[in-house]
Design a protein around this nucleic acid. Sequence first.
DNA 1: TGAAGGATTTGT
DNA 2: CAAATCCTTCAC
Length: 206
Amino acid sequence: MLLPFSPSPLPPISAAWLARPSPAIAVDLLGCTLVRQFEDGSTLRSLIVETEAYAPDDPACHAYRRRTPRNAVMFGPAGYSYVYLIYGMYHCLNVVTDAEDVPSAVLIRAVQLQQEPPGDRSPQPLARLGAGPGKLCRALQIDRSHSGQPFAPGQPLWLEQRSPSLDQQMRQGAIALHQTTRIGLTQGADSPWRWYIRDSAAVSKR
DNA sequence: TGAAGGATTTGT
DNA sequence: CAAATCCTTCAC
């Protein structure tokens, strides 16, 4: 299933809206728009269809043990990006949430691209390009240089609210949300902090 | 200074 | 199931 993109501009999501516990944000970000603005000024919009929450006292959270240079942004205020390199070859994009000094974030695991990203790329279904945290960063050309930056219009990345019609469909259950345990973890694997739009073509298997 | 391992993806 | 590939973290 492909979600409909809004034909009209949607309001940006504020840092204040993101200053809540990460599980709540993970649910609320489903159906919202991730906007990538490239250096030439062009933009590429994607609908968020799969997320995971990471929180304080969560063994799976990068900030679980202590503050380090890598995870420092998670200790800061909500509304900033946290991008890290995993397995030496893939980047993962997070939205920092909750209050300052409460290290938490939401991992964007899958998006539905509105159009083909710029650059030479072998023709591939858009749903595939955004299926997986590493793949969506590759498609949107997101790397660690984008970590620690605010989500705000005019920046390389920002977020926009759900369209009213999509919000209504999700609240009425016409678009089903699912909640499961998180993927690929060795610790904290029991917390049911993964959410996705069930029938989306872009979510991870399971 | 060294070593182990990871919020992934892909191909065998 | 294992490789690719490199950064982060922790131990010595």
